[in-house]
């Protein structure tokens, strides 16, 4: 098993955070993981992306180069930039709230999630990223939701543990949105 996931969007959408959560959760499940951010002036321009690899074997390249198994894209520039990095049959999870377009590729599976609206239903627009992550977890069926919630406390600290229920709901909303 090897999952190579790209996460991309505007700075402030919590892209890096969901990447870390997925990597940490993978580690808690005793898999090999890497989390690789974009860095430098690229970050300052307002777009953010990271690559997460979760594998049963030693992780080779932590970068994703035309071999992504999934991509979570939170805005249009991200979809344009990263759809080409997926393998045939790769999963492209699209934030429909902000992306009013379809991918150009037809050999990949596209999933549409109204992440911002679903987050607002929970009363907090900030958890749109978690909605998207929930959709990914449902589709990939690799990492347990429970592991992500454990990772949440590890990554953000005990003082944020009161936010776990809200984030759990967001993950569930995302999962429901892509359930067949």
């Amino acid at each position: 098993m090897e999952q190579k996931v790209i996460m991309a969007g505007f700075g402030g959408q919590g892209i890096m955070a969901i990447g870390k959560l997925l990597a940490y959760a993978g580690m808690l499940e005793n898999r090999n993981v890497t989390w690789m951010p974009s860095y430098g002036p690229e970050m300052r321009g307002g777009t953010a992306n990271c690559a997460v690899v979760v594998s049963d074997d030693e992780v080779g390249s932590p970068l994703i180069s035309r071999d992504g198994t999934a991509a979570i894209v939170m805005n249009l520039p991200s979809m344009t930039k990263f759809e080409k990095e997926l393998v045939t049959g790769g999963k492209l999870i699209i934030n429909k709230s902000l992306i009013d377009a379809k991918p150009t590729r037809t050999d990949i599976d596209a999933y549409y999630v109204n992440a911002n609206e679903l987050a607002m239903e929970l009363g907090n627009a900030k958890v749109a990223n978690m909605v998207m992550l929930g959709a990914y977890l449902e589709l990939a069926k690799t990492i347990e939701t429970e592991s992500v919630l454990q990772a949440f406390v590890k990554v953000f600290g005990e003082e944020k543990s009161h936010l776990v229920p809200l984030n759990k709901e967001a993950l569930i909303k995302g999962a429901e949105a892509v359930k067949a």
Partner: peptide, 10 residues
């Protein structure tokens, strides 16, 4: 290199 500096692993 920058990749090892910036990357996260267990």
């Amino acid at each position: 290199d920058g990749m090892i500096g910036q990357m996260m692993e267990a």
